[in-house]
Design a protein around this nucleic acid. Structure first.
Lengths: 143, 143
DNA sequence: TTACTAATTTGTAATGATTATAAATTAGTA
DNA sequence: TACTAATTTATAATCATTACAAATTAGTAA
């Protein structure tokens, strides 16, 4: 269950982060679209609302949100980071054909291996790669 | 258990990939050092043996090995790929302080979630981030 | 060996995401 | 209203990776 935009605004206030117009728009975008956008996608879409928007601001804002723990950045190859409102434990599946990222439920906490008992684990990630149902069916059509 | 350098050479022969000097050196490096090096680390170290080595060759060779299924490239943030001889299922832990990557045993196959039943999964990855024991003890020393 | 062809390597330049920097703008406050 | 700090913006820099084309090397058949 994703936190609502209102919840997120609350969080920022608590952490003493100013709620500027640009920051709110970026956060709203992430809260509403659950599509794991790249920084560039966020920039391009928000530019329609905020014509003066700068890409640097998008990057700055994402950094601030990540540091505040509201947003996570995930990298699944392709040297492009995708951003996501932080939610409960889930895995990511990236389609190698269309690039879409899908969430899937997984109990990552049950994964804790005994061999890391002396490590401080801050962050756990599970990601799979392959083909999504839509791209699979396209391949069948071609054949 | 990592495959031996001889096993890997065998694999390449079977796949009809020429065993050039440069390719063998890259493969040998990965088979001997289990340190998940970056392309740049491989290049810098091998340059001592092969002064004429080009970084492009390192990238080319890694691409060929990945396509052949002998090597895997992992990206854990930081927009730098690290390379690794493909072995049985294991997770990766990256220390956020020193950057070292540690392997840990984990049964990734048991993770298959029912919600991905219509997806074709080619690749499964588990990575954690945090602090390794050595960096943890350094922090304690400072305090 | 020699000559020819294909594969490989190399160096340089291009790409593209991200970051650094500093000036311009905006917000907050007394 | 004036001042200060925070934020945004535009531009340039960085850095891993890729594209490309020339140079080298290897493989093979005469």
């Amino acid at each position: 269950m994703k936190p609502s935009f209102e919840d997120l605004k609350q969080e920022l206030k608590i952490k003493n982060i100013n709620l500027s117009h640009q920051r709110l728009k970026v956060l709203e975008y992430l809260a509403q679209k659950h599509c794991h956008p790249t920084a560039d996608q966020i920039f391009t879409d928000l530019q329609k609302d905020i014509p003066t928007l700068s890409k640097t601001t998008v990057y700055n804002t994402l950094r601030i949100m990540i540091d505040a723990g509201l947003v996570s950045g995930i990298t699944i190859e392709d040297h492009e980071t995708r951003y996501d409102i932080v939610t409960e434990s889930h895995g990511h599946f990236k389609c190698e054909s269309c690039g879409t990222i899908f969430d899937f439920p997984i109990d990552i906490d049950s994964l804790v291996p005994g061999s890391l008992s002396n490590f401080k684990i801050n962050n756990k990630n599970v990601y799979f790669k392959g083909l999504c149902p839509r791209c699979l069916s396209k391949i069948h059509e071609i054949k």
